[in-house]
Every structure is written in C-alpha cells, then in structure tokens.
Design a protein around this nucleic acid. Structure first.
Lengths: 198, 198
DNA sequence: GGGCTATCGCAAGGCGACTTGCGTTGTCGA
DNA sequence: TCGACAACGCAAGTCGCCTTGCGATAGCCC
C-alpha cells in the first residue's frame, strides 16, 4: 500500500511529469539508499518505488550514478559545520567529529563510494570540486588560527587539512576501522603540534 | 601469433588446465589492466586473451573482483620499501615517494578501486589486513625514530602514519589531484614537526 | 475548451557479470 | 597402457545497466 502525501491530489495523477516526477524519484532513491544501501537502489527498484518508468530515470539523469549523486547531494550538504571557539584544537575536534558522524550514517559510505566510481570527465570535475570545497572550508579554521597567532604563519593549511580529513576517509574505505574519539584526539594533537610555533 | 615459452611443450596443448591455465589468465589480466585500465579487463576479454573460456574464470576465481584482486596481489607486493637513513624526515620522504609512484602507475588506481568495491565479509577482511599491514610497516620507521630519540616517546605512530599515507589515497580517490613533491614535503614537515620534542 | 509539444510509458534489444547443465578432453594412477 | 575422474569448453539463460524508436498523454498557450 503506497503512502500518499495528504495533498490536493485526489486520485493521484496517473502520470507524473517534470518536477513532480523528479521529486518522487529522488525521494524514492534516498529511501531505498537508507534502507538497503547502495546495492538496493537499482534503477528498476527506484523507478518502481516512485511509480515511474525506468526510461524516465535515464532520460532525466542519464545514468544510475548521476541519479544517486544528485539524491545524495540534495540530502547531505549541511553536514560540515564551521566551529569558531577561538581555539584551533577545539575547532578541529568538532569539525572532524561532525565529519566522522556523517560518515557513520548509511548515506556516508554511499556518498564516498559514489565519489570514486569510474567517472566521465564532467562528473569527475564536479566530484573534485565537491571535495575540494569541503577541504577549503576546513582550511578556514586553520587560517583563522594563523590570524590569531596561534600557529606559525609559514604553515601549510592545505597539508594540515588533508592530514586531518583523509584518514577518516581511508578508515572507511580501505581499513574498515571505526574512527574512535581517541584516534581523533591523537590526530588533532599531532597536527596542532606540527603547526604550533617552535 | 601467441608467444610460447620455449619449454617442453611440443605442439602447445589445445586446452590448458590447472596451474598453466591460471597462470595464463592472470598474465592476461595484468596485461589488459596495464593497457586499458579497469574497464578494459572484462571477463570476456581476459578469457579471450588467455585462450580460455569464460566459464573457467568463474570456476577458478568465482568473480571478476577476485580475479583482479589476485592478479594485482601477485603483481604489486614489493612496492613498499622500508628506508633506513637514520633520519626520520628522509625516511618518510622516501617511503611516501615510493607509495606515490606506485599509485601513479596504471595498476595503482586499479588496486585502490578494487579495495573499495562492495565486498563480502571475507574479502573485506583480507583487504583490511592488506592495508593494515602496509600501515604497520610504515609505523616501523616512526618507532625506530622514537628509539633514536629523534621524536618524543609519547607520540602516536599510528596517527602519524595515517596522517601521512591517507592523503595520498584521498588525492587519487576523491580529489583527483596529483601528489606533488611539494605537497609531500609539506606533509612530512608537518608530521615530523608534530612528532618532534618540544 | 481545443490544439501542440515536450514529456512519459512501453517494448525491444545490447552489453557485461554471473550461473547451470552437459558434453569433451587432460592427466594421473592402477 | 588404459580407464576414470577431475577439469575444461560450450550453449543457454538470468539479471542489472543502459539505449532507442514509437505511440500516448499531460499541460500550457492561445
């Protein structure tokens, strides 16, 4: 028994079009993704759940990859806060904890895995931009600390950010190890010490 | 014209079996992988190149994933040297440079991508073990430096190793950025400073 | 309200991964 | 040397991803 939004849709339109259809498909995708992970969200399953034909999915998104990408982009964008406590170590701890938490949801690994599937030139560019943006936002924390004189001015924020964030990805993708608070603390301590004035 | 090992194989067996067949398939896999990357190494292509039927591949390896995994494992195992120059910074520089170089070959990304394909419990365990082993070997460099008194004794080698190696993976997998010598230097400098006595 | 067009449903089909049942051939041991 | 059995080839078929051509319809504009 399919759920119906209690809206002004009396007998439910037999054939949804345009934005309504896209919305339905994206919603179905997110739901299947959350329930059964990546492999549950086949195009056929999504189309059936959305009450839409498979062809429409391909016409609107081009491929399964892009469908999942867009569904996840809609869903997980406000996942990286920019704390500003006035203390670099604390800022970094909070940022990384938030990132680790979002990676621990069912959608986190799905987003990661999508990011590394074989790609075309254009999807690869948007992927690169997506992650580069996330790194840049984290760099802000470090630059602010530099402005405060908390760290030495000749440091390389980019290297520090990658040294901090990449291990979280690697633990999920390659090591299969959880990101413990202890590990996070050790990581932050290492990098903050590395940035500190001598 | 197929190459023949100059051995005691007079008219070349029309139907290779056992070890001979496995060898031929693995060799064909590595070659296709190096030539055309992951997507070129389809099961049909590998089987054809090896002069073997597709069915034999599935009977011997179970899946394409495992075939590629085994082919790469055979191929890329002696890729992580353990330098011992007596200087931590130099040791790390060499280790990471070697790792970056091996990731820059056609087989490098293939190995990475295989490592994160959806896995069964057992393949995931062997993958975790594979990478954990590589991290542990790198930890040795840091422990030796600790023994030499080059860094402070209460440091966390594990966090340092992950902070150093993970960015190389992440650049390949998520950022699509090359690992430049400058970046490597900045990374090593950051971590070595973080480990140094105050 | 009637007509037009972009959009959608549908059927058919290709491709690659993977499976299964059966016929065929190597190869090793009696 | 000659079976016998394990190992391979072959054919047919399933499933998921993806494409294409055609007919049907929803929705917007007049």
């Amino acid at each position: 028994m399919p759920k119906e939004k209690p809206e002004t849709a009396p007998p439910a339109p037999l054939r949804r079009r345009g934005a309504a259809m896209r919305q339905a498909v994206l919603a179905a995708t997110v739901q299947l993704l959350a329930e059964g992970g990546l492999e549950a969200a086949t195009v056929a399953a999504v189309a059936a759940a959305a009450g839409v034909h498979e062809t429409s999915v391909y016409r609107n998104w081009g491929s399964r990859e892009q469908l999942l990408r867009e569904a996840l982009a809609d869903y997980s964008d406000q996942a990286m806060p920019l704390p500003d406590t006035g203390n670099l170590r604390e800022d970094l701890r909070r940022l990384l904890a938030a990132l680790a938490a979002s990676l621990a949801t069912p959608e986190g690994p799905a987003l990661l895995h999508l990011s590394l599937a074989p790609q075309t030139l254009e999807t690869r560019q948007s992927r690169d931009a997506y992650w580069a943006d996330r790194l840049e936002r984290a760099e802000l924390l470090i630059r602010r600390a530099a402005d405060r004189g908390e760290i030495r001015p000749d440091s390389e924020p980019r290297a520090a950010v990658e040294a901090l964030m990449s291990p979280l990805f690697a633990r999920h993708l390659l090591l299969g190890e959880p990101v413990t608070p202890q590990f996070l603390d050790a990581l932050v301590a290492l990098v903050v010490d590395g940035l500190a004035p001598r």
